[in-house]
Design a protein around this nucleic acid. Structure first.
Length: 206
DNA sequence: TCTACGATCTTT
DNA sequence: AAGATCGTAGAT
């Protein structure tokens, strides 16, 4: 048995969504026997971000995003898929990071049996697959991933250089926000969506 | 109340 | 290229 990596702290999440997003690449999500490694994320930065669920202020749905950092925000998309976000910044800010893709580290076959769905692949590219692999629904909103038990977010191997590009599926946002390079991915992973719109970032890591 | 529409995925 | 499928938000 390998010793578990340390939990990420509330202080880790209590920073700008762009910083947290970059540093979440390579981190692990753990739910019981299931362990996945984060390979792609998007930052939803602030109420002034016209792509964010917080763009129209506080509502029942986006309440978790306004809460303390290090909590989950899970919402239902297209009436079909659950999306996992991790709340960032300070309480009352309204920012989060969407986990778009992961790689299975272990435990996925068990989930496959339990859910009666086909998730055998090691690559889980796309936010709907992430929540499905971890068995998460909207009831997981507000769950602290900085504490042991349930869904946990743990440190992983640090990825120095990243793929960077625009976010996906936000055509309703302003042109500026549509173009904003708020999506980050691990260049070494094949579990990444819309890869052609990402470019390898030069220079220093965050 | 009513209506429109998604931070998607799969199949055609 | 389109259907599935339903909760939310904004309008009425």
């Amino acid at each position: 048995m390998v010793r578990a990596m340390p939990l990420l702290s509330e202080a880790f999440f209590a920073r700008d969504a762009l910083i947290v997003a970059r540093e979440l690449i390579g981190a692990e999500l753990v739910r019981d026997e299931v362990v996945v490694r984060i390979t792609e994320v998007e930052a939803y930065r602030h109420p002034s971000d016209s792509a964010s669920h917080c763009r129209m202020g506080r509502t029942a749905r986006n309440a978790p995003m306004w809460g303390p950092p290090g909590r989950a925000y899970v919402y239902l998309c297209y009436g079909v898929h659950s999306m996992l976000n991790l709340v960032t910044g300070s309480e009352g800010e309204g920012a989060a990071v969407l986990v778009r893709s992961v790689e299975a580290v272990r435990g996925i076959p068990t989930i496959e049996r339990r859910r009666g769905r086909r998730i055998g692949a090691r690559d889980l590219a796309g936010p709907g697959k992430v929540a499905q692999a971890l068995g998460l629904g909207t009831a997981w909103s507000h769950h602290p991933v900085i504490e042991a038990g349930g869904l946990e977010c743990r440190a992983g191997e640090r990825v120095e250089r990243l793929l960077v590009g625009p976010r996906v599926g936000i055509d309703y946002a302003t042109p500026r926000d549509r173009r904003a390079p708020y999506r980050f991915a691990d260049p070494a992973s094949t579990s990444v969506t819309e890869r052609s719109t990402l470019r390898l970032e030069r220079g220093r890591a965050s």
